[in-house]
């Protein structure tokens, strides 16, 4: 299994069961800083559950998880909530607040967690929305008036508003048409590039093998709660693992 110096996320013997169902099994899994790492796996493999552990939304049944050197178990609830500001997350359907406009959605975390003035907020929102390719004509539209691709852009801008150290993408391209899929993948790469100097790690959950091979630095394969393969993206296609071979040729 790959190992890194000072990983962004470090799981040690992490297991999770819901009742009698063992969902994650004894994971030893490190995610390196400032890289793009994709976790592939069949539906139901436990990918979203894994993501929720990174966020501290779920706690392991046994074992531990550290994020940016902090063992999540040692944090009180309030500290944990505060700690989550290190994360940005793009949800599968963007999860925009449907009563708020594009502008207000992106301004939301800024209003909640910073003391910026209205003017500063405007500049920051404008900057973020421009970087994901949205023009001023969509600033005051409600999410219901936006296309799926545009919603993704807004969701991404909102996730990046507080300069997260770790960006999480839960199936960012599932259910999108090929053109929008390409757009989202390009955005993931360009956001990672743009935030490289600052230091930003990207974790993507996906079952799109082809895109993962081209945009990731490392790829892990999660099967029924175990990481069965973890390689640099350039070597992943040559994996000897039967399951991985089958998944790639699907």
């Amino acid at each position: 299994m790959l190992s890194f110096d000072k990983p962004a996320i470090n799981m040690k013997d992490l297991s999770k069961s819901f009742g009698e169902h063992s969902i994650l099994k004894n994971l030893n899994f490190e995610i390196p800083k400032n890289k793009i790492v994709t976790i592939l796996g069949f539906s139901g493999a436990g990918k979203s559950t894994l993501l929720k552990h990174m966020l501290g939304l779920l706690t392991p049944t046994s074992g531990s998880i550290s994020v940016l050197g902090q063992n999540l178990e040692e944090l009180e609830e309030d500290e944990l909530r505060h700690f989550r500001q290190n994360f940005g997350m793009l949800f599968q359907y963007a999860a925009l607040f449907d009563s708020l406009s594009t502008y207000e959605n992106v301004a939301f975390p800024l209003r909640e967690f910073t003391k910026l003035t209205e003017e500063e907020i405007f500049l920051r929102v404008q900057d973020l929305l421009t970087s994901v390719g949205l023009e001023e004509s969509s600033y005051y539209k409600l999410p219901s008036e936006l296309s799926g691709g545009m919603r993704k852009r807004v969701g991404l801008a909102r996730a990046l508003a507080l300069n997260p150290r770790i960006m999480l993408y839960d199936e960012p391209t599932t259910g999108l048409d090929p053109i929008t899929t390409k757009m989202v993948n390009d955005l993931i790469v360009s956001m990672a590039e743009k935030n490289k100097d600052r230091g930003m790690t990207s974790v993507i959950i996906s079952h799109d093998v082809k895109a993962s091979l081209s945009i990731s630095d490392f790829i892990a394969f999660l099967d029924r709660g175990s990481i069965v393969e973890y390689l640099p993206a350039s070597e992943f296609a040559k994996s000897e693992n039967e399951l991985v071979k089958r998944f790639i040729n699907l």
Binding site: R81, H82, Q85, F87, F91, F97, D98, F108, F113
Partner: peptide, 18 residues
């Protein structure tokens, strides 16, 4: 309920908002 199924509730929690 709508906010729950569209993951808006999760979005709040991920931001650290109860």
């Amino acid at each position: 309920g709508t906010m729950k199924v569209t993951e808006q509730v999760d979005a709040l929690e991920v931001m650290g908002i109860s």
